[in-house]
Write a protein that binds this DNA or RNA. Sequence first.
DNA 1: CGGAATAGACAATCTCCTTGACCATATAGA
DNA 2: TCTATATGGTCAAGGAGATTGTCTATTCCG
Lengths: 148, 148
Amino acid sequence: MTDDLALSLPPLVLGLAADLVRRIDDGVRRRGFEDLRPAHGYAFVRLAPDGASVGELAEHLDVTKQAASQLVEELVGKGYVERHPHPADARARLIVLTERGWACTRAADEAAAEAVRPWEAELGPQRLRELRDTLARLAPSGRLRPMW
Amino acid sequence: MTDDLALSLPPLVLGLAADLVRRIDDGVRRRGFEDLRPAHGYAFVRLAPDGASVGELAEHLDVTKQAASQLVEELVGKGYVERHPHPADARARLIVLTERGWACTRAADEAAAEAVRPWEAELGPQRLRELRDTLARLAPSGRLRPMW
DNA sequence: CGGAATAGACAATCTCCTTGACCATATAGA
DNA sequence: TCTATATGGTCAAGGAGATTGTCTATTCCG
């Protein structure tokens, strides 16, 4: 592989990701959720399906349990999540989205789809699917860590 | 465009970018530059060609001049950059890389190439070039903002 | 030449994350 | 069963990195 090719790829990937984060964040704010920052979105991803404990959230975000606990406290205060007793462990608590939390999740999905729309206009559906398939072969399948 | 396609792309792009940042950071540290974090790399990109003023660096990083000034102070202390008088403006200073700064830049390029190498193994040179060309059509051409 | 704008640094403050200490509950071993 | 140890979570204090506000030196423009 030529160095030219190798060195051209990282700035493109990082630039595209940064642009994507900014556009999704803008879209979420425009939909009325102005008290959230991009980092919160990563928490919502983990909490959305069935909730999670603070420890599980901390692992997902790759921060300490204390940091996750503080994030939860902030989201509780803003009405996006609730602490419930954990059904299987009386020490733990199950953090679940409120209706407002779900509304924000739906807004984030809309914003994400909106952010990707120009890509289809530029590439067309065929090549966009190729991009998705290519990225799926390269991206790690694990958790999604915050980058900002 | 189906929502399925639209919603699958952002996690892939963000996941790949996060993985790339981590691998480059690891590679730079393994090459002996353990007192730097990824954010410094973005500064080096701007300083590398011919140096820059604090204000130019601040704009590149999308932070305040004060934050850029503190970053420069840190990099001066660690021996990666020097403050020189600005040839065209006595108020400003030209921040330039030291030899150690250049050595780190070269190490970062090596680490970046190393991080991309598995992609070629997975895709082959042909499809990797296609990926590069596709990303080049989508990524904003402007400055590269820090994301971590 | 004189007033407004700009480059940069200092100080104080804020936000987010970390480490350390601590309690409640769970789990394993004698 | 009883006790020792591990784990989930929060509280408190501190650190890193950013921000805003203020200030000086210099430049630009009328």
